[in-house]
Nucleic acid binder design. Structure first.
Length: 611
RNA sequence: GGGACCGUAGUUCAACCGGUUAGAGCACCGCCCUGUCACGGCGGAAGUUGCGGGUUCGAAUCCCGUCGGUCCCGCCA
């Protein structure tokens, strides 16, 4: 049907007869001569239709509109010198049409324009409803190709390293802990249910027991939780697991993988090794386990300075076991007014949304003078002031913002304010040309976090992470005491404040695995029922192993410079986990439910809407 | 489960302290135009202001509900 791609034509093809297929991007009708921009995957080329040199083609061209599908036959020729188009890759040539065949037309109006020239803000609702049209636009088309290229690069790299891709089941069993499962009734096994995997975690460990040694998979994962810009109910992980490798080797391999991907996609050589930070330092200095290190404004802990002072908001927080921390906003005296920090202000509201009651502030003036509310100024000695300014390194003009309260809330609030102000004050360049890729390994996560609501420990990562043996000790009898406080041999790869992936070394000792499951509150009996197959396998010569998984959608999103993973997924769902194109989920016939031994208890909230 | 924003021609937006016939760009239709490239010129058609209710002499505008979309909190080992 075609001999060349539209976007591939250059001077070398001059005088060649070509056949092109594509969509009408635009048409310019000069009454006599008609120009058509014909677009296909490869790009756009100008078709020239001259009534004297192609009467039949001209008759067709007179009635074409955008997005009509054409086959064009003609001869490539040089454009006149005064008509070159340097903005077009094919701008030196054009195709003189001898025949134009309409392969398909467009009935009625399109819901939105396709041409790059019209890629304006389009309602996302419409884009999703007519996703096939949205995909035809350059932006989404490029994103999908970037995604394919990223997967391809990863596959080639891992295959070269001796990994093999193994597919794991999509129909599996529901497990406790973690996110809500999508579940499916079994027709054959009445009353029993499959779950869609939240990740291939257990299967990949069992592949290690199976002697695969180096596994990877581009794996679809499912979680039935509420959505965000970077969360979809089904998403893709670049998942891997390997035997007989220590943490150092795993991190090294993954750094090389990431460098290869970034080199291929962005042409950049990332500096290696990637910096590392312990979880504890990350929480202390940034208030989060995924710090954005592209800018400063680190958190400074000043609890010790203010613990005895008369300002009760500060001293009370420390005495109650919490913290007082602050961030120094350079130039904040001019950039951030008091109104913005006080109730009703935008900065205040950021802190409040993170659970903080408010933000105390100190403005640093010339000569180390400070400017703040009376309650702080009156209760702060010269010695304390000096220490405060020294520790924060605050120059005149700096605004100090304080969080006081329980440590988790202080961290959360200041982290949020820090990120908000960085954006507000232009510390992060959105410009693609100035892209900064600040990779960071966060290591030494705690094994568990105490959940005071449920009065039990929860796995911070998941309950298959291996604890650090130095924290655990070798005396099995003491594990019940040492385990809850132990660090995990877990690691996250953070990029510009977003978690790109994470993993750990796994437990390959059955009694330790039982102990961990008990620590997170799973009775032995239930542990055996839920995870018996894993524990059993560990006793049959399970090799030491570990792995990692990257969020592929998120990775492509960052590579593409997009702000939502929906723009990296061909057919994503809305925030209500609905597909606007197919109108899924949808009702099914009663008989289908009966076959599955299922009855719906759903009652429409408003009977009128259900007609 | 909660908070915020949004929904007006095919589309992107305007009109919104209630007040004549709801406007404009692009797209669409017709006519003109032989070197444009976001071509140009003239003309035309195009609206249940998401839906339902209320207040009012009068509602795109104010109020309540509802549906849909987006962002965030909770949630997401």
């Amino acid at each position: 049907m075609r001999s060349n791609g539209c976007g591939d034509l250059r001077k070398q093809q001059i005088d060649e007869q070509v056949q092109l297929c594509g969509w009408v991007d635009r048409r310019r009708d000069h009454g006599g001569v008609i120009f058509i921009d014909l677009r296909d995957r490869s790009g756009t080329v100008q078709i020239t239709v001259d009534p004297d040199l192609g009467a039949d083609a001209f008759a067709v061209a007179e009635h074409l509109r955008s997005e009509t599908v054409l086959q064009v036959k003609g001869k490539v020729r040089a454009r006149p010198d005064e008509s070159l188009n340097e903005r077009l890759a094919t701008g030196a040539v054009e195709v003189l049409a001898s025949s134009i065949t309409v392969l398909n037309g467009v009935k009625g109006n399109l819901p939105f324009p396709i041409s790059i020239h019209d890629e304006e803000n389009t309602r996302e609702e419409l884009r999703l409803r007519h996703r096939y049209l949205d995909l035809r636009r350059k932006r989404m088309n490029d994103n999908l190709r970037l995604r394919a290229q990223t997967i391809q690069t990863a596959r080639r790299f891992l295959e070269d390293e001796g990994f093999i891709e193994v597919e794991t089941p999509v129909l599996t069993r529901s497990t406790p802990e973690g996110a809500r499962d999508y579940i499916l009734p079994s027709r054959v096994c009445g009353g029993e249910w499959f779950a869609l995997p939240q990740s291939p975690q257990l299967f990949k460990q069992l592949l290690m027991v199976g002697g695969i040694e180096k596994y990877y998979q581009v794996a679809r994962c499912f979680r039935d939780e509420d959505l965000r810009a970077d969360r979809q109910p089904e998403f893709t992980q670049l998942d891997m697991e390997m035997s007989f490798m220590d943490q150092e080797q795993i991190l090294d391999l993954n750094e090389r993988l990431i460098c290869t991907i970034w080199k291929t996609a962005k042409g950049v050589d990332l500096p290696r090794p990637f910096p590392r930070m312990t979880w504890h330092d990350a929480m202390e200095r940034y208030g989060t386990d995924r710090p954005d290190t592209r800018y400063g404004m680190e958190l400074t802990n000043v609890s010790d300075i203010v613990k005895e002072m008369g300002f009760k908001v500060f001293s009370g927080a420390v005495k109650a076991g919490g913290s007082v921390k602050c961030i120094a906003v350079p130039g904040g005296n001019d950039a951030v007014s008091n109104v913005r920090i006080k109730p009703g202000g935008d900065v205040f509201s950021e802190a409040q949304q993170a659970g903080a009651g408010g933000l105390a502030f100190i403005r640093v003036r010339d000569g180390g003078e400070i400017d703040t509310i009376g309650a702080i100024k009156d209760n702060l000695s010269e010695e304390q002031t000096r220490e405060l300014l020294g520790r924060t390194g605050a120059e005149p003009g700096t605004l100090l913002l304080f969080g006081a309260g329980d440590t988790a809330t202080v961290n959360k609030a200041l982290d949020r304010v820090r990120q908000y102000l960085a954006r507000e004050l232009g510390m992060v360049k959105a410009d693609q040309e100035n892209d900064q890729w600040n990779f960071l390994w966060v290591v030494d996560f705690p094994m568990f976090e105490f959940n005071s609501d449920e009065n039990r420990y929860e796995a911070l990562h998941h309950p298959f992470c291996a604890p650090n043996i130095a924290d655990l000790g070798t005396d099995e009898a003491l594990w019940a005491d040492t385990l809850p406080k132990a660090r995990a041999q877990a690691y996250d790869l953070v990029l510009n404040g977003l978690e790109l992936g994470g993993g750990s070394l796994r437990i390959h000792d059955s009694s330790l695995q039982r102990q961990v499951l008990q620590t997170v509150g799973l009775p032995l009996e239930e542990a055996e029922e839920q995870f018996g197959f894993l524990i059993e396998a560990l006793d049959m010569g399970a090799p030491p192993h570990g792995g990692l998984a990257f969020g592929l959608d998120r990775m492509v999103m960052l590579l593409a410079g997009e702000e939502s993973i929906r723009d990296t997924i061909a057919f994503p769902k809305t925030q209500q986990a609905r597909c606007l194109m197919t109108a899924a989920p949808a009702k099914v016939a009663d008989q289908q439910l009966a076959d599955l031994h299922v009855a719906s208890t759903w009652v429409a909230p408003n009977a009128d809407d259900d007609a």
